[in-house]
Design a protein around this nucleic acid. Structure first.
Lengths: 227, 227
DNA sequence: ACATAAAATTAGGTTACCCTAATTTAGAGT
DNA sequence: ACTCTAAATTAGGGTAACCTAATTTTATGT
């Protein structure tokens, strides 16, 4: 339990890297993410480098080593398993589970994780729609992509969200968009990429490009023009 | 979660005090219990005193203030609720739950504790037989007392144990003594207080006074001569 | 009462994490 | 190339929790 700060650094690097794969993960990014200051992060990066969990230089930023990646994915695994357990077994709401799972993910008992993973039926995805890595740190396959990459006419199903803030989740609730909902992209505004969507019950909603980037979907038709 | 060390100090003081109510809780006792060194404990005691959670002087030892007691009992509550949950819901063995509950007890979510407490049926006692304090820090009533206080001929039922080490729990398993077993005290050796006990299925076992002190029982007959 | 063992306390040090306030280095625009 | 800004880094501290090695008290046995 004393190593939970280290776990949080590794998880942060993982999350920042997967959030935007094009940019490097800078000390400033990590500091912002963990609500710390850059010198603090820099210091810790030095320690993580020495431990062989991370590589760092100012041009490439921080990168997880294979060992660091394994640790990070294990935490992600625990987090998502707990989220699912809280949601499915203990009837917490979608927006409540994250904060509690942030704590539970650091509880060190493989047997406990195995047990609750069994109870929830060993799913590949958590209630947010995020993939649950296996023990070896491998992610299950899927064709998930951001809704923002859809083209006009695409019919797709909501698999998850990339942002888990209450603000965002409540925003989706207001738009009446839920996990597994099917959406049709009616129009894409060519000026600001705002999407006009219609959902199953023929409600039509407008969604900003910013929000659409955070929604993970999969095309319903296997030969959909979206790639 | 960062305050878990403090929680552990308070819990240690509580446990040491309830373990032997006659003796004072010394820094050395606490150090031994938490696997720390006396100066470390002394330093922390100063902080706890300053925070109004504990009183301390070398003659009376460490004592929980009302506020400190409330915090300690809340941790005990969480610990025992988790133990029960792990045992009853997640099918962990009696000897496994303690270690995991040691970690889970520090997870800070009243709603989570409430939820799992509901799931296990809001019991007054945990699977060890230990009482679960309510939210106000009150312990449920019972006539529990150590088996070592029994007199010859007493018939009593095992409600719990005061020691939770694997060593001790395995010892009980070997003697084939379980929670809720009924025992009859056949003889008490007047030299070393060793007990000769017979259990329901007429097995006879010898038990040291040391072990008997750790077993909590209740007389079966309301007018039993044990007091 | 006195030696001696044990416990409490003091002194001084370490490591992990976190900070603010410079300073240096990169990057971006002109 | 030059300037200006933002990011990275260095310098210098602080606190919490630990520790070991004295030193001082307190208890204890004879």
């Amino acid at each position: 339990m004393k190593t939970y700060r280290e776990e949080n650094y590794l998880k942060a690097i993982y999350q920042l890297a997967s959030h935007d794969k094009t940019r490097t993960v800078s000390p400033t990014d990590i500091a912002h993410w963990l609500e710390l200051k850059p010198p603090t992060v820099l210091e810790k990066l030095g320690i993580l480098v020495k431990k062989g969990l991370v590589t760092y230089n100012k041009f490439d930023g921080a990168k997880l080593s294979p060992k660091g990646n394994e640790v990070a994915l294990n935490i992600v695994r625990r987090h998502r398993i707990w989220e699912t357990y809280l949601y499915k077994q203990l009837k917490f709401s979608w927006s409540e589970v994250h904060e509690i799972a942030e704590q539970l993910e650091h509880v060190n008992s493989e047997k406990l994780i195995d047990r609750i993973y069994d109870v929830i039926g060993r799913p590949d995805f958590d209630p947010h729609g995020d993939p649950i890595p296996n023990k070896q740190g491998k992610l299950p396959k899927s064709d998930r992509r951001p809704l923002s990459e859809s083209i006009k006419g695409c019919k797709c199903v909501v698999l998850g969200v990339s942002e888990h803030s209450e603000l965002f989740l409540n925003y989706l609730t207001e738009l009446n968009i839920r996990l597994n909902d099917k959406l049709v992209v009616e129009q894409i505004n060519s000026y600001d990429d705002t999407l006009k969507l219609s959902s199953k019950n023929n409600e039509t909603v407008l969604m900003s490009s910013k929000a659409a980037q955070q929604i993970q979907v999969q095309c319903v038709k296997p030969n959909c023009a979206c790639k």
